[in-house]
Nucleic acid binder design. Sequence first.
RNA 1: GCCCGCUUGGCUCAGCGGUAGAGCACUCGCUUCACACGCGAGGGGUCAGUAGUUCGAAUCUACUAGCGGGCACCA
Length: 891
Amino acid sequence: MEIPKQYDPKEAEQHHYERWERNGYFAPEINQDPAAQVFTIVIPPPNVTGSLHMGHALQHTLMDVMTRHKRMSGYRTLWLPGMDHAGISTQLMVSRALKEEGKTRHDLGREQFVERVWKWKAESGGQITVQMRREGASVDWSREKFTMDEDLSRAVREVFVRLYDDGLIYRGNRIVNWCPHDQTVLSDLEVEKLPQAGKLYYLQYPIKNSDRRITVATTRPETMLGDTAVAVNPNDERYTDLKGQTVLLPLTDREIPIVEDDFVDPQFGTGAVKVTPAHDPNDYDMGQRHNLAQVVVIDAQAKMTADAGAAFAGLDRYKAREKVVAEFEALGLLEKVVDYEFSISKCERCKTVIEPLISTQWFMKMDPLRDLALDLMAREKKPRFVPETPYEKVYTNWLENLRDWTISRQLWWGHQIPAWYTPSGEVIVARSEEEAREKAGTTELTQDPDVLDTWFSSALWPFSTLGWPDETEDLKTFYPTSVLVTARDIIFLWVSRMVMSGMKFMGKEPFADVFVTGTILDVHGQRMSKTKLNGVDPLDVFDKFGVDATRLTLAQVGTTDTRWNEKQVESYRNFANKIWNAARFSMLYSEGAGVNASLLQTSPDLALHDRWIISRLNKTAREMNAALDAYEFHGAVQTLYHFFWDDFCDWYIELTKADVTAETDSPKRTEARSRLLTVLEHALRLLHPFMPYITEELWQRLPGEKPHHPAYSNAEPTVMLAAYPEGGPTDEAAESQMQTLINLISGVRNIRAEYNLKPSDKITVLAGLQDPGLRKVIEENTDQIRRLTAADTIDISIKTDAPKASAKFVLSGTDEVAVPLEGLVDFAEETKRLAKKKEKLQGEENKLRAQLANPDFALRAPAEKVQQTENRINEIQLHIKALDQSIENLQ
RNA sequence: GCCCGCUUGGCUCAGCGGUAGAGCACUCGCUUCACACGCGAGGGGUCAGUAGUUCGAAUCUACUAGCGGGCACCA
């Protein structure tokens, strides 16, 4: 079998996914163990309009690592995929397409427009599901959901009706955030506050029956046309005599009162505030407190209404502003205009300045729901946020200050509100029009034209996708889910609402843990964004370095904000190639051999390197399971990388090479070959959750017995259903002996490098080892040492009798190694080399001695620590003594 | 305004109470029979600053500075 020298990721990425999916490996049904524990993740449903970005790739990688790890560990796993109908985004996208045809949605009418959106979805929606397959995401496509599916829509209506019946959903006339561009109301969370350089206008209002004026400051002069009061702080002495007076509102024929309200800050502006209840949330509240009239002067198109007066009616709000200012100036009532930076509310999506308007909308009363979530946190500390800081606190604080949620939207694409109106204006809320007719006792019903906020259906995602309100098997099996993986920007929009609805309708939290990922920033530390065009396309990275290398890079990001670093991906591409070539070597010499798990049973009879790699493998497996269970992805990646590259490739393969590549067949050769293949096979399993493609590609090729986890015994061979190694016993003696061997070999190599010896220069290694155990280890490995240091002779004795012209190093305490270098040793240089080492040791000794000299140290530090320090000092002393001896011999 | 996070070698990041780590970059050597996307050997950091707690602090506490983020009804 020809195996190319270089790993081609595209080749491996081509076939396996299709096979995995076709064979049903992603579905929980593949697990045959009725007693299996359950592991569930529901995907944060990407927008149907969206395409894959780095944030998705990061989240998906982490979810896939978790899912694959649990699946291999015998859990019945479900990672449920799906998409969100993304109300406004989708409607806008289709509207834009219509515009190209010279039409608007109104030309089509509601029914045809919605049909058109469905058509768009069928043809070009859900690009991301194709891209997720490329990522290797092991989601169960047979359970894929869409928030507008009939079953999920049914859940939405059910929830609406129940909350309405509970009095938690109500219809009300209140001030709301209105986007004049998208022509819909928005919730507080869909509005972003942006700093804005603007002006503060000081307007003078004449007082009735007086020649005095009162000055108010405003950033929005046009709203003065809707003023219905001027407010001052009750304790503001400047205005004591004006209290209860009446103001003649300029540019209108209205007279408005001066009221007192604590809300007014005497320090700001003039201490007098114009009150426009119909166009400002604070003024609205003040209006409620003082029973003020609401004069609507701006309409849904952000144009002035007839109530703004004939001179202004029909004007755009900004034109009206100019005109108001001009007229005030003409009247001599414009006191001054100053530059002023303030924050302005904009539509998160289209960046249009929000117009606060009074409007009849549907709202959700949040307090009782909020309390469910807060209780859950207080009582059970759920959900558990990872990382706990700052998210637990941020989440809790937000809940504590929660206000009612505006849930209606003036859109066509979405779940139409299940409320009908009778001719007499009675409101009937029902699960269907049929039910509404029954309730109303009439067929003359009109359904509310509005739809629900997209997040209304997302809030139900963890149970609506599993069949709720029916008590399905899936719902019983998979709810509550295990962990939610998400970006931090939707903790309020989505996470908190899922907790509330989960508690309300399931009586149980929707997920145990919430893992909040970090953010991938661009190379300059800026957020990647479409408008900034600084985003890196994951698909380009896949093409350049392979999916597996990209996944490894993303996995180690974990919860930290990290700048995009292509070099990192490149290094993991190289790692993939290293894996490929280690496997290539193992299989090049696999004749007569095969994977055989029994060869990983350790035994004192085995060679040191075998006992060592078995111990290292077991330790690595334990660390991997611990790290993955603790969501420590960075540590997990590091552990894998160093086990595979340093332990397995740099040392184990080199040490087992002699046996593996032996010319003649023998049981020893077969065993060495088989053990190498077996260690590799286990390593591939450990790597699989992170690097699904290369591991499957190689695992399929390995000869020998590669059993599945017992839960999957019926399935065809695949690494994704092999057992994740749990890690057997470790062998500390073997690890420490091996470390000595490594130190010896590295020490000799160091001498070779420092003396610029050519690889062809043969050397003799003299080892003086007083410790009999150590001597035995080294004696048993003389051939290995000879090969790995390119030495001719290894001479082991109790004490070296090295010639003066030798380079030396101390292995430990009294054990030293010498390499005679007749004619090559510059005595002065060698003295310097040894002195440098001594100096370093001396520094350490001084530090430790100072510590020991502190009487409090002996008194307060744990005895074990004191002992350790003393031991280390003794060791250093022996080492220094040996160095001194060597230096003296050189003189 | 309030709250939070970050600041570790040239770069990107680990570590989070017991002598500073990785990858990349850098230096030197190597066509060593798996891999030059490689092999071997090295150099490089008073862990932002200050003051505390502690026998001992990159690691805990407080403050300061720089950067980043979240929340907030100041017209």
